[in-house]
Nucleic acid binder design. Structure first.
Lengths: 334, 334
DNA sequence: CTGAAAGCGCTAACAC
DNA sequence: GTGTTAGCGCTTTCAG
């Protein structure tokens, strides 16, 4: 590994001059520059980024914290972030918090020691994570959720819930239900938006099948809850909103096993519009979060915060309905 | 940011002593150690990993190169790798080659400058990527494909193809087809295994629907090809093997739109056993690659290569059939 | 236009 | 036990 000193020796100049040439400093005689570059090439010199960083330069590193990697919703955002970061000249260290506040804290500590210039994160908890990020004292951008005091990139889950409700009513559904958590932070908000919009149109939610979010690929809980609910009150709706795409898939599996056909007997909509929504049959109607845009914007917001100390800012992006086969209304009289 | 010098000053010792305390060097008087630790805590000292690295320590960083992040097959492996790496004390820089040899080369160059200690990679091309990794001259472990001259962690796609073939025959299918690329490196191998096993049992492949692998989430090509094929020779089989889970999903969509029901009219099996296989309805029978194990093993193999210069080694892991609803045989006379 | 000197924060070899 | 001296590879004043 040739170092700057090696180049300097060969070229008969000082290390400083080599540094100047490599950083395109104007004040170097063309001839000297050429000589230096000759040896740079010849010795196949490669800068040592670690040394550069230590000497005062930036690390060009950012950290990314997610609660899970292999859930399409997250992995699509991760892909978008990596992509934009690369474009901007940054590398990203990916970290899985696994929804543990403890791990999240440790990760932040380590990232800080590694001198990342900032982090983009899906915080483990809207309430309890704040302190750790506050202590972190480096630029941070939160994604997919709102968290006061930080720059955030997200969609309004309330509006998202409303959009689905509106879509259901437009199609002509009257007996409407919901499947998912009703109390988790963001889920509660989308549930509220959904419910309130319906109520404002004098439609009551009939079935509310409470079940946990399918975290860590452990989704089967949803399937069981739907079946249990069917055995209890029974499935009384023609259309359901599922908390997310995986929940929708699990619900569909349960409906099928109960003998219902989608969307003929029961219509269902998902939330997120991840890969799953696009690939299952029938294709899933879903509220689309702009995943690619969330990733891109997050990087941009982070860079902005890194250069200059811009105050935290909220980026509430637009969500939209993607109507597909899973909510075609076969019962509509029109 | 308190530095070692600050601690040393406060504690009235030299920087070296502080270093010794922090690295648990035995030769430090208990009293001194205590004093130092007191100030470490008081000043909230945090080591500068960049400085440590430069001074000769390791970076504890590894690079991960994948052709795509948001495809469940890859994201599940990524998750497993991050997990194991974290467990071993390493951070991972995630890089998306986007299937470009050029980008792959640039990424390797940068990772080298960042002084990562090794990389785990899904090489862009089995043939053309080798040179770049060779030049890289750092420990590297290839995953999901075999690549001579490097440590590799993968399953035998040939055996995988055979396993599916065997499964089909066991179920009693006679008219069998294949959907996917027949010439791409790994696909060609699995296709060969599939075909040869059938041939050895005197069963000829009837429909071979050639179509590209659904790269970069651009899967609809498969859908179109299946439809086009149906309009041409027609679908003449009772069971198909799809090159991967996404291809299977697209084929299912096409079958449905053509009026076939799965698995009643047509059975289908996927390959990989990613999230998709588990979540779609009907649940997809698939050849399971041990995704979690591939990730874990890759990290272990890399660490082994990093400590000591163990020669490259091949880790051929076991694949297995996961039988689910998509290949239930309704026509079987038994 | 170029070089000498100092330092980024830490570790390691060798003394005392 | 602890400090002194060097040095990791680079950047950044400040002179000349």
């Amino acid at each position: 590994m040739a170092s700057m000193q090696d180049i300097a020796d060969k070229a008969g100049v000082s290390r400083v001059t080599v540094s100047r040439v490599l950083s395109n400093h104007p004040s170097v005689k063309a001839e000297t520059r050429k000589k230096v570059l000759y040896w740079v090439k010849k010795l196949d010199y490669e800068p040592n980024l670690i040394a550069q960083s230590l000497a005062g330069n930036s690390t060009n590193l950012i950290g990314l914290l997610v609660p899970e990697i292999a859930y399409p919703f997250f992995s699509e955002i991760i892909e978008a972030i990596e992509n934009q970061a690369f474009y901007e000249g940054y590398s990203v260290i990916i970290c899985n918090t696994r929804r543990s506040l403890e791990k999240e804290k440790n990760i932040l500590k380590e990232l800080k020691q590694r001198k990342v210039e900032g982090v983009i994160a899906v915080p483990v908890s809207s309430e309890h994570s704040a302190a750790a990020y506050q202590r972190f004292q480096l630029p941070a951008v939160m994604i997919t959720k709102r968290m006061e005091g930080f720059s955030c990139v997200y969609i309004s889950h309330y509006v998202g819930g409303q959009q689905i409700a509106k879509h259901f009513l437009n199609i002509g559904f009257q007996r409407i239900g919901y499947i998912g958590p009703t109390k988790d932070s963001t889920s509660a908000i989308k549930y509220a938006g959904f419910q309130n919009y319906l109520a404002a149109n004098r439609v009551q939610l009939i079935d509310v099948i409470e079940c946990p979010a399918p975290e860590n690929m452990n989704a089967s809980m949803v399937y069981q809850r739907v079946k249990a609910y069917a055995a209890g009150p029974g499935l009384r709706c023609e259309a359901y909103l599922a908390n997310d795409d995986i929940t929708a898939c699990e619900a569909i599996a349960a409906f099928r096993d109960l003998g219902y056909s989608i969307p003929k007997d029961i219509a269902i909509a998902g939330f997120d519009n991840s890969l799953l929504a696009r690939e299952i049959s029938p294709k899933l109607t879903a509220l689309a979060q702009p995943l690619e845009e969330i990733g891109r914007k997050a990087v941009e917001a982070l860079l902005e915060q890194m250069s200059g100390n811009a105050p935290p800012r909220m980026y509430e992006l637009e969500s939209r309905i993607i109507a597909r086969e899973s909510t075609i209304n076969f019962n509509s009289s029109t």
